[in-house]
Design a protein around this nucleic acid. Structure first.
Lengths: 188, 188
DNA sequence: AATTTTCTTGACCGGTTGGTCAGGCTGTGG
DNA sequence: CCACAGCCTGACCAACCGGTCAAGAAAATT
């Protein structure tokens, strides 16, 4: 699964080869096909895994008393995921850009339900005067975009940074995102 | 070029085929190879085109008196590009996720020079007290991430939106991004 | 009109891909 | 020891890929 995640992330579904995944995992290609009959089966598993991780990242948001804690924790969680699972994030991006041929049903069921739930949470915070009256959906898009950017466009960031991001760099990035967004929604 | 942009965007470099691009453009494959000897030549042209468009989008930022006008105009320009050239944006995303095998030199020369120029501009605005002391580079990342998200993840947004975005939807998206970011950097 | 250059195209080729399959290997229960 | 089920794998195949090429069509030049 780790090898598959990496290869799919770096080459996309079309560019990835079962041979390369097998080599990277130290298996004969035929053995890989024993467990995952088709390339699409393997790919689907990788996409579903990262989706599960993302869903759990929102748990911290739910029982928070307000946006400072809730959205702050969500940013923290998603930045951590971007750092630790950059490949999974990339595979998800590939899939969505591909018009989600494999996980369209997930988008329409699970993700939509998740989204409307958080939209209602944000609307409550707005009604309680805990943050400015921003559009909740576009706030969610901004949260996804900004945090996932550090995974999906990590290569671009590393090039501009002249090297991989250090612990301090990640801390600074997370703090910057938190500060700008929380101030942006009038929560600070 | 239009056909190539679309096919590369929807399948990535590895998944795209010259045959499909040729068919979509209404040409025999051999004729396509007459103008673009290799698949990589065609791909490079597509990536360079969107990069040029993005560079020009920053013109409005340069002669602005302050962040409200400058960054506001930049957000407007990049949102317009996301709407009109979603495929180009996706190809760029594919390329960067691929660790930029084709345009790494652009990242290291043109993009790096462009970035340091804007960083200095933002630092001047901060020194002049026109905005809060945010980290300029992470602000740029946030601008790129948020605006390009509407192109790269357009399919996800349309799914949650239950259909394509209308003129009013795009207006609302642009306003939301502008408001949240400008307030986030203390310019409002 | 003749000639030269540019463009267009169907047929073709070596190499690679996802996937198959027959047969060997391993471990467990009797 | 045997038998049997699940696991493993080298060799193989049809399909498809990027790219070539020779020969013809069109356009430009003389």
């Amino acid at each position: 699964m780790q090898a598959a995640e990496k290869v799919f992330a770096e080459a996309g579904f079309g560019g990835a080869t079962m041979q390369l995944i097998a080599d990277m995992a130290g298996l004969p290609k035929a053995n890989l096909h024993y467990y995952f009959p088709t390339k699409e089966d393997l790919y689907r598993r990788v996409v579903q895994d990262i989706f599960e991780i993302w869903l759990h990242a929102a748990d911290s948001m739910d029982q928070a008393p307000g946006p400072i804690e809730g959205i702050g924790a969500y940013i923290q969680a998603k930045m951590d995921i971007s750092r630790r699972h950059p490949n999974g994030s990339k595979v998800w991006a590939f899939e969505v850009m591909h018009r989600a041929p494999v996980i369209q049903d997930y988008l329409e069921t699970t993700l939509r339900a998740w989204t409307t739930g958080r939209v209602r949470l944000i609307e409550r915070w707005i009604a309680e005067g805990k943050m400015a009256p921003v559009d909740p959906e576009h706030l969610l898009y901004m949260l996804w975009a900004t945090t996932q950017h550090y995974a999906d466009f990590g290569h671009q960031i590393e090039t501009l940074n002249a090297g991989p991001l250090s612990d301090a760099d990640w801390q600074k990035a997370t703090d910057s995102v938190k500060t700008m967004i929380l101030r942006g929604i009038g929560a600070l």
